[in-house]
């Protein structure tokens, strides 16, 4: 069918494949941590999943801060911290360079899970909020930096230096929705718990469970709610300039009045419309919150204004013909609803 042939559909297949591979791939790569592909993946594939093929970079980073900083400071030998930290970062970057932020839009199990929840929400006819207000977006954007600085580096560092009790050594893992989601997918309820052993563990486990529930519910109405505050998104933002895959734009004055790209963007990146208009040469517009999903390119009606490039070679470019087809396909797809919970919208016959 015509409507099957678009980038989003291709992306869904890749995401599904990667989901299955990352969540259940131990059958292929091996069971032990030593067998895993990198141990520092730039996506939230979880180390707690006993069947995973690889796990995210955030767990070694937290552990290194937690277990190495204190001893390094005590002994005055900072190499004790830097060596493992650099090893993790280099491994992370070796993967990251290849796909850049596409690790979010194409690979991450939690990113895909949120998109699936959104599909379910849409098919159930739940309320759809396509974009948040500029003010809300501006307020949410810094949270990912706090998550990275505070939960991945800050609190584990304070724990290592003895300012906090041991429970705070890996605080991001303890609230990470991917931990609960992926383990549930392997049929284990081991990570779905309230830990009553100490007040700190109790607070962290309650926060984690709550955030997981919140993410599921919100993803049905708002696109990618957790991604907006994800510490890996922030880490990607730091290194996005070295990635081989890029989103580029060569805008025109028509962009000022259009803005369909910004509307299509699940991450509410409004700068897509306003930046790089009237430029001579295409410019990198892989912004900090971008997940390289390519939706903006799909929905840009102007020839070659937006492009995804690999090693500066265009691999997917905006075109008026594609835009028309894509818009039609989206309309048809949106019509398919199983139930219409949201009564203020016109219900369409299936």
């Amino acid at each position: 069918m015509m409507w099957l042939k678009n980038l989003t559909v291709v992306r869904r297949f890749v995401q599904l494949f990667m989901f299955v591979f990352l969540v259940y791939g131990s059958v292929v790569v091996g069971f032990y941590a030593a067998d895993k592909i990198s141990g520092a993946l730039p996506s939230l594939s979880c180390a707690y999943d006993s069947m995973n093929a690889d796990y995210c970079a955030l767990i070694p980073l937290q552990h290194q801060m937690h277990h190495r900083l204190g001893p390094a400071v005590d002994s005055g030998d900072m190499m004790k911290l830097f060596m493992p930290l650099v090893t993790t970062l280099v491994t992370f970057l070796m993967m990251f360079v290849l796909l850049n932020k596409a690790f979010c839009g194409w690979i991450c199990p939690l990113g895909f899970f949120q998109e699936v929840m959104q599909l379910i929400g849409q098919k159930l006819g739940l309320r759809k909020v396509d974009s948040l207000s500029h003010g809300a977006v501006d307020k949410v954007r810094p949270v990912k930096w706090l998550m990275l600085g505070g939960l991945v580096f800050g609190l584990p560092a304070l724990t290592s230096l003895g300012f906090l009790s041991d429970e705070w050594g890996d605080p991001f893992c303890q609230i990470c929705p991917s931990r609960i989601m992926t383990t549930l997918f392997t049929g284990s309820d081991e990570q779905l718990f309230v830990d009553t052993s100490t007040p700190s563990y109790m607070v962290l486990s309650i926060l984690g469970d709550f955030l997981f529930g919140l993410t599921i519910a919100m993803a049905m109405t708002l696109r990618q709610p957790f991604c907006r505050i994800c510490p890996l998104l922030a880490m990607h933002a730091l290194f996005r300039k070295i990635g081989l895959a890029r989103l580029v734009k060569k805008g025109t004055s028509r962009c000022d009045k259009c803005g369909i790209c910004a509307e299509a963007c699940p991450m509410d990146i409004r700068e897509l419309q306003t930046d790089h208009n009237a430029v001579e040469k295409a410019k990198d517009i892989t912004l900090p919150d971008c997940t390289l999903c390519g939706r903006c390119v799909e929905f840009c009606p102007d020839k070659d204004v937006l492009q995804i490039r690999y090693l500066n070679v265009p691999v997917f470019s905006a075109s008026p013909q594609y835009f028309k087809r894509r818009k039609k396909a989206q309309k048809e797809w949106d019509k398919v609803k199983l139930i219409g919970f949201n009564t203020d919208k016109t219900k369409v016959k299936p």
């Binding site: 909020v129 974009s131 948040l132 718990f193 955030l211 919100m218």
Partner: peptide, 28 residues
């Protein structure tokens, strides 16, 4: 010291709270 049923309960509370926020989210 870990209760799965309490965990499931908190997830449920998160879900309900999420659906509540969903109704309040201003459409932009």
């Amino acid at each position: 010291w870990k209760s799965v049923s309490l965990g499931a309960l908190v997830v449920l509370i998160g879900l309900i709270f999420g659906f509540y926020i969903n109704r309040k989210l201003p459409e932009h």
